[in-house]
Design a binder for these strands. Structure first.
Lengths: 168, 168
DNA sequence: ATATATTTTCAATATTTTTTGAAAGTTCGA
DNA sequence: TCGAACTTTCAAAAAATATTGAAAATATAT
């Protein structure tokens, strides 16, 4: 397979992949493009490569920057802004985990805390099932929260080798 | 907080949560409703509780069954079908992991395999960056694959206590 | 200060996804 | 075998989401 075709396929499936993870297709595609670009690229490069409008490109780049996955680069003597993505995939994964934990897990845990002390007779089957469900989700969530915290701080080597120990 | 309100909040945020995970809002809401229902419920119960149409209810229940998260129950002497969800959250999580691994991780790994042996001079910076990116994603993916396999087979107690050992 | 290059915004538009509801299909008791 | 109870399908409509593009804002060189 030629590089051009391989790039296309990579970008396109990374985009499709993203949609299963609550990330919009274009944002994931831009990220994919940056991941495989050796040098920083401009907005116009991205627009041309992915056939998308200036506004769309701009918004999605900004979102990637918010997620901490992409950085602005100013090349000396150049007027245009360039963009580049972190290439170390382990760092990328950790960054995504960190953001999603903050954006999703933490608010969910706060809600479960409130819901756990619902009024009502604990002998009422409906109340009991509700509280049990909420509590067990919370318990697993807490565990996940701790585990992810350690993961976020870990070096890949350390993390992988620790997992290997457990998982023979 | 009253049970009725708590239920509403739980269902509604579980629905919103789902949308961040590539699951449609209604499907997640139905799942939430079943999780907190002590006894099996009918399509009509769900339609009424969530204010959704018959067709919508039916399709999403079917999808939940495909995911292995919900089961049909035939109550003796009853004409209607009832539905019930697995209540053990650890089992639920394992089932979701198992399905997503099959639906997303495995196809992605296959693609990466193909893309890894792209034609071209490895000294060309563009080729090199592409291959390096693809390879490192593949490496991490393989590790994730193995880890998830073990997790899928694990009992919660065993899994959590193992993690605790690593993560002090 | 002005002209020019570049970035950002956002209302309008297009696309995708979800939902509806009525018709077709199925099951089952009598 | 019939008919009522129930389930499934799917084209059309609605809702949600993403994209465009042109105007406004901003930055930079001279």
């Amino acid at each position: 397979m030629k590089l051009t075709e391989a790039k296309q396929q990579f970008i396109s499936s990374w985009g499709a992949f993203g949609t299963h993870w609550g990330i919009n297709r274009t944002m994931a595609q831009i990220h994919a493009l940056l991941l495989i670009s050796p040098d920083p690229v401009t907005q116009d490069d991205i627009m041309e490569e992915l056939n998308i409008s200036r506004g769309n490109t701009n918004m999605n780049i900004r979102e990637l920057i918010n997620w901490g996955l992409v950085e602005r680069v100013i090349l000396p003597g150049e007027r245009k802004e360039y963009f580049t993505a972190e290439k170390d995939i382990w760092k990328v994964v950790k960054q995504i985990v960190k953001e999603r934990k903050k954006r999703e897990l933490e608010p969910m845990m706060q809600l479960l805390d409130k819901l756990e002390d619902v009024e009502g007779d604990k002998k009422d089957k409906k109340v009991k099932t509700f509280v049990d469900t909420v509590s067990s989700i919370k318990r697993l969530g807490l565990q996940a929260d701790k585990t992810l915290d350690v993961m976020i701080k870990a070096e890949e080597n350390w993390f992988v080798s620790s997992l290997m120990k457990i998982f023979k």
